[in-house]
């Protein structure tokens, strides 16, 4: 009988910390109501498979996402964050995603600067018609986070 040798997963930021054998990544998905949330709905109704690791929060617009939300997510349950909004030019509120785009870049760079791997926080544009793209994005982000291992940085003590 050949036992399957599993590769041990360690945390990217803290290489001395190992993940438990049954560890599954948790991804916080913050989706815009008008495009990405409808897109994820289409993924479900089209019966396209995607990893169940994502926990979805609906927000009115991607510019509703305060950098604070990302920090809070990373400090509680999430190992990674995916934020998704409308394509540039498609925003329901005309220009919300342009403002959000600037904020996302700075947030991503600052988190990377203090020690989070750049793949921990990811952004995407998914429209309401792109059910297949949503499944692809979630699969990619889940695989990225799985490679990085569990997040041990600055977790809240009682969570």
């Amino acid at each position: 009988m050949e036992a399957e040798i599993k590769e041990k997963i360690v945390s990217m930021e803290k290489p001395h910390m190992e993940a438990p054998p049954d560890w599954q990544p948790v991804i916080m998905g913050i989706l815009c109501n008008w495009c990405s949330y409808a897109g994820s709905d289409l993924t479900g109704t089209s019966r396209i498979q995607y990893p169940p690791n994502i926990r979805i929060i609906r927000v009115p617009c991607s510019s509703r996402v305060d950098p604070w939300f990302i920090i809070k997510s990373l400090q509680t349950i999430a190992d990674g964050v995916l934020i998704s909004g409308c394509h540039p030019g498609d925003c329901h509120y005309i220009s919300g995603n342009y403002y959000a785009r600037r904020r996302f870049l700075v947030t991503k760079k600052l988190l990377n600067f203090v020690g989070f791997h750049e793949n921990r926080v990811q952004f995407s544009w998914v429209s309401a018609a792109e059910g297949a793209k949503f499944a692809k994005v979630v699969t990619k982000v889940t695989e990225d986070i799985r490679k990085l291992g569990p997040l041990h940085l600055y977790k809240k003590e009682n969570s």
Binding site: P67, W68, I71, Q75, L110
Partner: peptide, 10 residues
């Protein structure tokens, strides 16, 4: 971490 990061991003 929560306080300083939020503060600096705001």
């Amino acid at each position: 971490f929560h306080a300083l990061m939020t503060w600096s991003l705001h």
